[in-house]
Design a protein around this nucleic acid. Structure first.
Length: 270
DNA sequence: GCGACAG
DNA sequence: ATCTTGTCGC
């Protein structure tokens, strides 16, 4: 009668407090600068032993309309130069954790981490050097979105990519659109997201001339905003960066293909 | 108090 | 996140 149960808890607020504590604890491990051995550009001579960025990962999840708790998680790895998928893996599961704005990671991170861990355990040659995440990084109420969460727990450089703006620190979509219009005469496709407090949360980015609606890039882990934007630019064939787009397409297709078996096997569970 | 709120 | 038809344009 009191609206509890939204989180499956018996005492309202307790779970949220735990989640906030967890985010604040992990946030202390966040690295907000380039912290990787590879290079983005080969314009200059390669110092001996230095490697290039070659394998870019992407993660996303899809859900069944019949039962929103039935989900498909997908991890893809693309070869940067060709933007071809060189690895993909899926996980079908039943989610018990609800989606709560600001706490997406507690719903999606566990299964995505498993997919990454599986590759690592197998010492897979295409294990990603950087991960693009369908969800924000520090562009988040407490500065620690899904991309940060995954990055820190997987010890992997990560980039947050949002298709909608999470309103934080006074930021809002119409404001971003106005900013683009002011610079529209020029070739400007990137708008820095500076909140009322003066801090920079990420950038609004219009990948193609067609896409009026921007995507929102923010730091996940072990990478600077500049590098994150560079990688977003070179992975965009369409509005959504290819690693995330492929994870999205494939997770949805896989879910549909196995829908019949899913509803029967996962449905009666619990 | 009311509205806003990644996926 | 998911539903859903057509439609405009290269």
């Amino acid at each position: 009668m009191d609206g509890e149960g939204m989180l499956g808890e018996t005492s309202s607020g307790t779970q949220l407090e735990n989640w906030i504590e967890e985010q604040d604890r992990l946030k202390k491990k966040l690295i907000a600068y380039d912290d990787f051995p590879w290079k983005l550009s080969s314009s200059v001579e390669l110092p001996q032993g230095s490697e290039m960025l070659r394998y870019v990962g992407g993660v996303d999840m899809s859900f069944a309309k019949e039962d929103p708790s039935v989900a498909c998680a997908c991890l893809v790895v693309l070869e940067l130069r060709s933007l071809r998928v060189v690895h993909h893996d899926f996980s079908l599961l039943h989610l018990h954790v609800p989606y709560v704005p600001g706490f997406l990671a507690f719903r999606e991170a566990p299964v995505l981490l498993k997919l990454l861990q599986k590759m690592k355990d197998d010492q897979h040659p295409f294990y990603p050097q950087v991960l693009m995440v369908d969800g924000n990084g520090i562009l988040h109420p407490r500065g620690f979105g899904l991309a940060c969460h995954l990055g820190v727990l997987a010890h992997l450089p990560a980039i947050g990519v949002g298709k909608n703006l999470h309103h934080v620190d006074g930021l809002n979509q119409s404001e971003v659109r106005r900013s683009f219009q002011l610079k529209e005469s020029q070739d400007e496709q990137v708008i820095t997201l500076v909140g009322n407090s003066g801090s920079t949360w990420g950038v609004g980015f219009r990948p193609t001339l067609n896409s009026l609606k921007p995507i929102y890039i923010s730091i996940g882990h072990r990478i600077s905003l500049d590098s994150a934007v560079k990688i977003a630019k070179i992975t965009c064939k369409y509005r959504v960066p290819e690693p995330i787009r492929q994870a999205d397409i494939r997770s949805r297709a896989y879910l549909q293909k196995h829908q019949r078996r899913l509803l029967k096997e996962l449905g009666p569970q619990d």
